[in-house]
Amino acid sequence: MMDDRTLSLRVAAAPLVATGLRRLHLVAADGSRLPPAAPGAHITLTLPSPAGARPLRNSYTLVEADPERGYQLIVRRTDRSRGGSHHIHDRLQPGDTIEATVPHNLFALHSQARKHLLIAGGIGITPMLAFVAHLREARAAFELHQIASADEAGVFAALLAPHPGERIQVHAGRDACDIAALLAAQPLGTHVYTCGPGAMMDRIAAVAAELGWPASHVHREDFGAAGGEPFTARLARSGIDVAVAGDQTLLEAIEAAGIDTPSLCRGGACGVCILPLSEGDPEHRDHFLSEAERASGCHIMPCVSRSRSATLVLDI
């Protein structure tokens, strides 16, 4: 339902599809329907953190989202991560339940594209699998290039399994795909979608810009910046310190501390929640304060903005 913003999901299956790649099949814990989702959408899972600290929140693209069959994700076991993928790989068992947000989409296909050029690196394949399924059904023109390390090329080729007549190529090795030549050969009206390591997405955007592609034709995967690093808000007049968790807004933290403070849109637009700031390095994420107001450093919109410094002092 519309207002159930947190989903309780049950792991229906969690097979290893290749070394370090696990497919997660998730269904509603109570057997009900799950919200549908557009290709490119992701969900954020709440995973226990190894040290017993605050739970981790990791976002994963939906490879498939069917209200009745459930959601499919592919999770790579990464060593750099804070442990979320380790938990999924090492501990999560079929039958376990996990919490997730409803799907959110910041990587949508463009409705007016004449052709869709999909370029993925490594595990960046996940949204592409959803795109390909959708574009096939819509009979839209597309082309996919998957860049993979030599030893994983076979795995990705099997996941992609092209239909006859489709241009789906797996390039073994980072330099096996000539991005400039690929983009230069595209017909006018093509949109490019990239997902993979940041450096790869940056390079494709740079090449596209050099070739004169409009920025609105270049799309990259984005999970958004809903949360951030935790910090402390010192409420000078009330004389209390409020801990703002990574997945909580400053406004929510102030409210949770029992301080009544006005708000309306809770999305950085209306200006109602404005608070006076006396110290700290704010990270402004609103659309309300002007550049000049930001520069003066006297105010913050707590419904969306956060702090770069460990502590932010508010004059309330």
Partner: peptide, 12 residues
Amino acid sequence: RALQYLMRVRYG
């Protein structure tokens, strides 16, 4: 500002 807000309206 309204446009920025509306474009960020999320499912649910």
